[in-house]
């Protein structure tokens, strides 16, 4: 009985052939493309990192100085746009990752043990105490007590 890798030829044969065939086609295209043997490269550039920064924030005045890289496009619009896109990703992933218990979303960071321990009401103050109770975990520090004192809703248990 061998534990070495085995070649699975049953279900993945067709996709494998497809992938290899695609690679052969693509490789043929590339090998027939007339690339010039010389790479332009970044000869005599002071700092590529600095140039990336200039390109990202449209600092053309700095970009066009001595020892710079010509023809790099401006990316400020893309930079602003990706800020919004990352916001969207944050929003989307939070919505998906939250758990509901009894129809109410539980804070994403709450753990199972103490997270659902609130009074079950819809007030946002309860969710706040939930979160701190969950992050404080086992040790019954003064923070938890203070939190309970602040929030009468937490006293019901």
């Amino acid at each position: 009985m061998t534990t070495g890798p085995k070649l699975r030829l049953d279900s993945s044969l067709a996709p494998g052939v497809l992938a290899v065939a695609l690679f052969v086609i693509m490789a043929t295209i590339v090998l027939n493309t007339g690339f010039s043997p010389e790479m332009e490269g970044f000869e005599g550039v002071d700092s590529i990192t600095a140039e990336i920064g200039y390109a990202m924030f449209d600092l053309e005045a700095l970009q066009s100085t001595e020892g710079s890289i010509p023809d790099t496009e401006a990316f400020l619009a893309a930079f602003l746009l990706i800020a919004v896109a990352l916001d969207a990703a944050l929003d989307a992933s939070l919505v998906l990752a939250k758990r509901e218990e009894e129809g109410e979303p539980v804070a994403a960071l709450a753990s199972r043990g103490t997270g659902s321990d609130g009074a079950g009401s819809a007030a946002s103050g309860v969710a706040g105490s939930d979160r701190s109770a969950a992050t404080d975990g086992g040790h019954e520090g003064s923070t938890v007590d203070a939190d309970r004192a602040d929030d009468p809703g937490g006293e019901s248990r």
């Binding site: 790479m39 590529i48 990336i52 496009e73």
Partner: peptide, 14 residues
């Protein structure tokens, strides 16, 4: 690197 401009590098970051 081939074309000698940084557009590709910056786009790769994005």
């Amino acid at each position: 690197f081939y074309h000698g401009n940084l557009t590709g590098q910056v786009f790769a970051l994005f």
